[in-house]
Amino acid sequence: MSYPIGTPGKPWNDEDKKAWLALQSVKRSYSDDVVSQLDSLSEKFDVERYGTLDYDINSYPLFILKSKNWQNNKPCVLVTGGVHGYETSGVHGALAFAKKSATDYLSHFNILIAPCISPWGYETINRWNPTATDPNRSFYQNSPAQESAAIMQYLADNSIAPYAHIDLHETTDTDNSEFRPALAARDAKTHDNWNIPDGFYLVADSERPEHEFQTAIIKSVEKVTHIAPSDENNQLIGVPQTQFGVINYEAKKLGLCMGLTDAEFVTTTEVYPDSPQASDEICIHAQVAAITGALDYIVNK
Results as ranks from 00 to 15, higher is better:
Ala102Asn: 05
Ala102Phe: 04
Thr103Trp: 02
Tyr105Arg: 03
Leu106Lys: 10
Leu106Tyr: 03
Leu106Ala: 04
Leu106Met: 15
Ser107Lys: 15
Phe109Tyr: 15
Asn110Phe: 02
Asn110His: 09
Asn110Asp: 12
Asn110Cys: 03
Ile111Val: 15
Leu112Thr: 13
Ala114Ser: 13
Pro115Trp: 03
Pro115Glu: 04
Pro115Lys: 05
Pro115Ser: 02
Cys116Asn: 03
Cys116Gln: 02
Ile117Met: 14
Ser118Val: 01
Ser118Asn: 15
Ser118Leu: 04
Pro119Phe: 01
Pro119Asp: 09
Pro119Cys: 04
Pro119Arg: 07
Tyr122Val: 01
Tyr122Ile: 05
Tyr122Asp: 09
Glu123Phe: 05
Ile125Pro: 04
Asn126Gly: 10
Asn126Ile: 02
Arg127Trp: 08
Arg127Met: 07
Arg127Phe: 00
Trp128Ala: 14
Trp128Arg: 15
Trp128Cys: 12
Asn129Phe: 05
Pro130Ala: 07
Pro130Met: 05
Pro130Asn: 05
Ala132Lys: 11
Ala132Gln: 12
Ala132Thr: 13
Thr133Ile: 15
Asp134Ser: 13
Asp134Cys: 10
Pro135Trp: 06
Pro135Glu: 09
Asn136Tyr: 01
Asn136Asp: 03
Arg137Leu: 09
Arg137Met: 08
Ser138Ile: 03
Ser138Gly: 10
Ser138Asn: 09
Phe139Ser: 12
Gln141Thr: 07
Asn142Ile: 00
Asn142Glu: 11
Ser143Phe: 01
Ser143Trp: 00
Pro144Thr: 07
Pro144Tyr: 06
Pro144Lys: 06
Gln146Arg: 10
Gln146Trp: 10
Ser148Tyr: 00
Ala150Asn: 06
Ala150Glu: 03
Ala150Phe: 01
Ala150Cys: 07
Ala150Leu: 09
Ile151Ser: 04
Ile151Trp: 06
Met152Trp: 03
Met152His: 04
Gln153Arg: 12
Tyr154Ser: 02
Tyr154Asp: 00
Leu155Phe: 03
Ala156Met: 02
Asp157Ser: 11
Asp157Ala: 11
Asn158Trp: 01
Ser159Lys: 14
Ser159Pro: 05
Ile160Asp: 10
Ile160Val: 13
Ile160Gly: 08
Ile160Gln: 09
Tyr163His: 13
Tyr163Ala: 12
Tyr163Phe: 13
Ala164Trp: 10
His165Gln: 11
His165Thr: 14
His165Leu: 13
His165Met: 07
His165Asn: 10
Ile166His: 00
Leu168Arg: 02
His169Phe: 03
His169Gly: 06
His169Trp: 02
Glu170Met: 05
Thr172Glu: 09
Thr172Met: 09
Thr172Ala: 09
Thr172Pro: 00
Asp173Gln: 13
Thr174Gly: 00
Asp175Phe: 13
Asp175Thr: 15
Asp175Arg: 15
Asp175Cys: 12
Asp175Lys: 15
Asp175Pro: 00
Ser177Ile: 04
Glu178Asp: 07
Glu178Leu: 10
Phe179Asn: 09
Phe179Ile: 06
Pro181Met: 14
Pro181Ile: 14
Ala182Gly: 01
Ala182Tyr: 01
Leu183Ser: 12
Leu183Gly: 09
Ala184Gly: 14
Ala184Phe: 11
Ala184Gln: 14
Ala184Leu: 11
Ala185Met: 08
Ala185Ile: 00
Arg186Val: 02
Arg186Lys: 15
Asp187Val: 04
Ala188Leu: 11
Ala188Met: 11
Ala188Arg: 13
Lys189Leu: 14
Thr190Ile: 11
